[in-house]
Write a protein that binds this DNA or RNA. Structure first.
Lengths: 185, 185
DNA sequence: GTCTATAAGCAGATAGAC
DNA sequence: GTCTATCTGCTTATAGAC
């Protein structure tokens, strides 16, 4: 319905919303078509290999968004604590304050999910590295820095799962608030 | 193929394996049929409402298994630390040392997942309560006990997600090993 | 309690007009 | 770059024989 030449970024954003709500297998072409306002064939024009290509575009956009919301703030000016606070805010925005699921979680599931694992692995490693670098700068030795960075990512993703399953995002919010202290204690 | 009157427990166990590997939407009747050795119609004989009934049976069996592997050890005799160590071992077995996904994670996804949220919520609350009770017994005040119990569950589930996405279960194993110390420190 | 056969619908994907 | 129409295969689900 309507062909307003929606910019590709906006198309990918709408696809992302569906994938995050329904998961990879649950995101049917019907739903993706409806969310973008593009017919099936239009989607195939933009994404020749279909759902697979859409998922890859969504992952690439999410990688960029994580860079902007999390990695850039971590590498910015300011005290170490200020940067961790900014990072926590970034994670909060990226995950819709606990209401939006994580592609790491959704895209790793089942037979079709296997193909996405390498991309997800790289994304996680990048975040871990960025957090670890700041901790090293704060004076922690390398091993401890890596472990704490890992623990921070574990806490964020665990809180996300339990928030959804528990029906409340309070848990996720708490984890984010405590994150700077937990990293620096 | 073959009709050896497989005991229902064994059928549910095999269904569980498929659901945990493929997720709710990915677990097609074809795969469930193959895994159990029962034809489609036999499955409908045992589970009249189809996949939905199978998922409920799988959730009930998992609840029982968590009770046996985690809740019973937490309420057993022995020092507080010994019970937490036993609990960690129980979680390790339940999650196949990090190789088996969590139904909490898989069944909460997408449109069909909504109906399972209440059951998942109860399951999480029960585990949190059981851990919190032991911490109170160990002398922690109620609020701190609840928070630490929550943190433990967050760590376990977060580690599970990151282990799968990161391609290694080392992370999950580490979290389990550190769990007793983290709860009691 | 299991099977074979089949229905009805939706999945992903393509052809070709405009 | 979008559309309508269509294809094939797989999905859940049911009917009825044994």
């Amino acid at each position: 319905m309507a062909h307003p030449n929606l910019p590709k970024d906006e198309v990918v954003e709408r696809l992302t919303r569906v994938f995050r709500r329904e998961g990879y297998e649950g995101a049917s072409l019907a739903r993706l078509s409806e969310a973008t306002g593009l017919g099936r064939s239009s989607l195939y024009h933009h994404f020749p290999r279909g759902k697979e290509d859409m998922a890859e575009a969504v992952l690439a956009a999410s990688r960029d968004r994580i860079a902007r919301l999390v990695l850039v703030p971590l590498a910015a000016d300011g005290t170490v604590r200020e940067r961790f606070v900014a990072m926590a805010r970034g994670f909060g925005e990226f995950y819709g304050n606990g209401n939006q699921a994580c592609l790491t979680e959704l895209f790793g599931i089942g037979t079709p999910g296997k193909q996405f694992i390498p991309v997800l692995t790289i994304g996680i490693a990048r975040m871990k590295q960025a957090i670890g670098d700041v901790l090293v700068e704060a004076g922690f030795d390398d091993a401890l820095a890596q472990r704490r960075a890992e623990d921070a990512l574990i806490a964020i993703h665990g809180a996300l799962v339990l928030s959804r399953a528990g029906g409340s995002t309070a848990l996720f919010q708490r984890v984010l608030e405590e994150l700077p202290d937990r990293l620096l204690s």
